[in-house]
């Protein structure tokens, strides 16, 4: 192996790495994402029904429900629980709105030591920023498409 050109060494090595590196437990991860993601949705539904039962319209109840989930996720992040849930849940806990809350609160906690403005303020969107940017860009592109082709 030593005397071979570097490119061949790299290819051979990549093969060994692939053999030795453990395979992700796909079924377990899928099941975890399904259950955790589903549970978050169920909790959301419970709050939605609760708020509707208190007399809010569907739209108002939806906003109140989102706010409740965001609050709970932020609280669990602060208590150091949310990352433990995500260890099992994977995308099931990252994709819902609770994952978004977690991605804002975790850098806020992390960078508190650098001060409120340059620490928390500047870093708050380090993880969530790209989600917002591409969400807005997509909305903008669809808006233009809709304007011309509706």
């Amino acid at each position: 192996m030593e005397t071979q050109p570097l490119e061949i060494q790299k290819k051979q090595y990549a093969k060994i790495v692939k053999e030795i590196r453990p395979k992700p437990p796909l079924l377990r991860n899928l099941a975890g994402a399904f259950v955790v993601g589903g549970l978050i949705a169920v909790i959301g539904q419970i709050f939605l029904n609760l708020y509707q039962g208190l007399g809010l319209s569907l739209q108002e109840a939806g906003a109140a429900e989102s706010a409740t989930l965001v609050f709970l996720a932020a609280l669990l992040t602060g208590l150091g629980v949310y990352d433990e849930i995500a260890k099992v849940g994977g995308a099931g806990s990252i994709v819902p709105i609770t994952g978004f809350a977690n991605s804002m609160v975790s850098p806020a906690m992390e960078y508190r030591g650098e001060g409120l403005v340059l620490g928390v303020g500047a870093r708050l969107f380090t993880v969530a920023g790209p989600v917002l940017v591409f969400g807005i860009v997509t909305g903008w592109a669809i808006g233009i498409f809709y304007y011309f082709f509706r």
Binding site: P24, D83, A86, K87, G99, N102, S106, P107
Partner: peptide
């Protein structure tokens, strides 16, 4: 973790390796 990867409280599923 915070210099090289993610905020520690961020919910990330770490790979087995």
């Amino acid at each position: 973790e915070r210099q090289f990867r993610f905020p520690t409280e961020q919910g990330v599923q770490r790979p087995l390796h």
